[in-house]
Design a protein around this nucleic acid. Sequence first.
DNA 1: ACTAACGGGACTTCCCGTTCCT
DNA 2: AGGAACGGGAAGTCCCGTTAGT
Lengths: 194, 194, 194, 194
Amino acid sequence: MIDTRQQILRKNFEAIHLHGFQGTRADKVISELGITKGALYHYFPTKKALGYAVVDELLAPMFIGTWKPIATYNGNPIDYITAKLHDLSASSTDEYIALGCPLNNLMQEMSPLDTGFRNRLQHILSEMQLSLAQGLKRGQKQGIVKKQNDPKQLAFFILSSLEGAYGVAKTMQSKQIFDQSIQTLIDYLDSLKV
Amino acid sequence: MIDTRQQILRKNFEAIHLHGFQGTRADKVISELGITKGALYHYFPTKKALGYAVVDELLAPMFIGTWKPIATYNGNPIDYITAKLHDLSASSTDEYIALGCPLNNLMQEMSPLDTGFRNRLQHILSEMQLSLAQGLKRGQKQGIVKKQNDPKQLAFFILSSLEGAYGVAKTMQSKQIFDQSIQTLIDYLDSLKV
Amino acid sequence: MIDTRQQILRKNFEAIHLHGFQGTRADKVISELGITKGALYHYFPTKKALGYAVVDELLAPMFIGTWKPIATYNGNPIDYITAKLHDLSASSTDEYIALGCPLNNLMQEMSPLDTGFRNRLQHILSEMQLSLAQGLKRGQKQGIVKKQNDPKQLAFFILSSLEGAYGVAKTMQSKQIFDQSIQTLIDYLDSLKV
Amino acid sequence: MIDTRQQILRKNFEAIHLHGFQGTRADKVISELGITKGALYHYFPTKKALGYAVVDELLAPMFIGTWKPIATYNGNPIDYITAKLHDLSASSTDEYIALGCPLNNLMQEMSPLDTGFRNRLQHILSEMQLSLAQGLKRGQKQGIVKKQNDPKQLAFFILSSLEGAYGVAKTMQSKQIFDQSIQTLIDYLDSLKV
DNA sequence: ACTAACGGGACTTCCCGTTCCT
DNA sequence: AGGAACGGGAAGTCCCGTTAGT
């Protein structure tokens, strides 16, 4: 028997991706697993606590982990970023684009409504930005990235453009638009290489 | 007595901006205006109909109108865009940033949930993109904008980065981050001028 | 311009037949006529008053009138009844059977709920029964109808079987079942002729 | 503590008998039992589901069971039917007559409005008719029932007259009228014995 | 560790009726 | 005579959370 808590967590992560946090009926979701509300409230005191756990244990590692390696990457950080952006394009299906980025979705939905969510999402963004900024800074020091931009500022711009691309593509229901925006971002970043 | 329908519409636009569409309790909102449920139902048969009206009559004109003039603008379209972006930065208060862009909020919240909303929001994005693309195309023809980018594609990138900046800044609760991302976007656009 | 009051009455009679009295939304019904609630409440103080008027002015004359002539009919009253029953079978479409007899529908729906309706419907039934009983009594006196049955009692039985046939056929959605029950009733009545 | 679900079912059966299905406020009804809305929702997701359960678990067995034994009855089926009709007369109080037959009430109210109800009520009628027809057919084969009538057709006529008697008596608020109609039906049936 | 039963507030919708006005 | 605006109670549904029990 696998870990019930993990099952609950994973299934709700999917459901939140599909319907948003508020739109997710936690007990209905896990009923598909043959689990009832009792188990849910055994592991998590409230629905919000479950949401926090989804962010902390699934969302955060996933997203922070994506940009973490840039710190130890040997080579031009722009290349790393470009490669990652290409990955995101390549691995995104039409369905995924139509659902939107889980991080972006949660940011837009829950940031203004709940401090607990906002703090957690701020943390994720900050960690991602930190990794990117560190990488870019190293590139600038090594003289392989132009020095015209502040690394921290540029890092936020990259994240903004990326999440913005997810958001617009979600509404337009078009993976093509996502891909094109990512490509434009890549082109821009490429122009920052020395 | 001024137009009750308009009052309902405006007050709900604010409320949707504050709490999202689903989080808005239409009857409570207008009770502050001394308007009752009965009047609400008289004008809007369902909550969704009210939401659609808010989008059609307030949101769409506001956002589409922002970029429309670029078509008849005499001068470099990049300058027009830059000026508008500066306007958005200048006119945004900390509170506004913390609430997020009304268009972006609605896109993220309602696009996956309701076709009626999605179609309307697609329409707004398309109109904005069309105006931008037309302006950029004209600039390219006049030889004052570099021809390396497809105008339509670039238009979506601009919108994505703008809305993305709103989204990230909302979560980070930081007008500074918004301003910086906008500045980075402006810098990039500036590099596209001939 | 034809009489607005009559229009309201007729249209609501149809609607009550279709949806029952409680299921009828009087203002929606007349909106199809281009009339608004104002006219409705100008002519009828309440919905119930409208319902009473429908019964008094449309339903009652129609149903009482069907059996009235039996009193002045020269010939065997059984023949008159048989002819009328055949008429009802012949003139009933599948749709009419599926909707049910307007009188029966209203009896079942409103009799237990409202005294005003019940009194009116009792009156209709009583008048119908009276006519039938008078006719049967005359037949018995003339020696052309067997004397084994009390005319009043037999009159109620005829009405009961008729309305019961409507009711069962409505649920079964079958004009054939209605026709067969009517035929069985006719056969029985035929056996009462001398 | 006895079965809550059964309590809900029984109490609502009574309430539907009193006020009709649409007129029944399920939560108010059970509040008299000290049961709350929450428990109601736990057992029945919608009001309609509750209504269906009342039909399936209480109404159907009761009515189908009444005529079922005729199949295994040794003797003249007309006698069985006559006995049952006498039972119905004897056990009906004035109040019961004024309320009407639960089956007939539901047939008239819900058949045209909802397919789920109609199918269930059709099923009840069909089962009752089937039992009656089987009994009558056996009687005809044994030569103790006249062969002039088709058993199936006669079965529907009996049911129609019975339910019609309930309906007319309900409106007339008269158990006497019910008894007399039943007696007339019995007399007719008696004439079909060989 | 997990289930079934249960509590109860909140929300949208519905719709009868009233009032003001022309 | 009749239309538009408006009032407001009530019904059904939804769903988060609690508790007794195994």
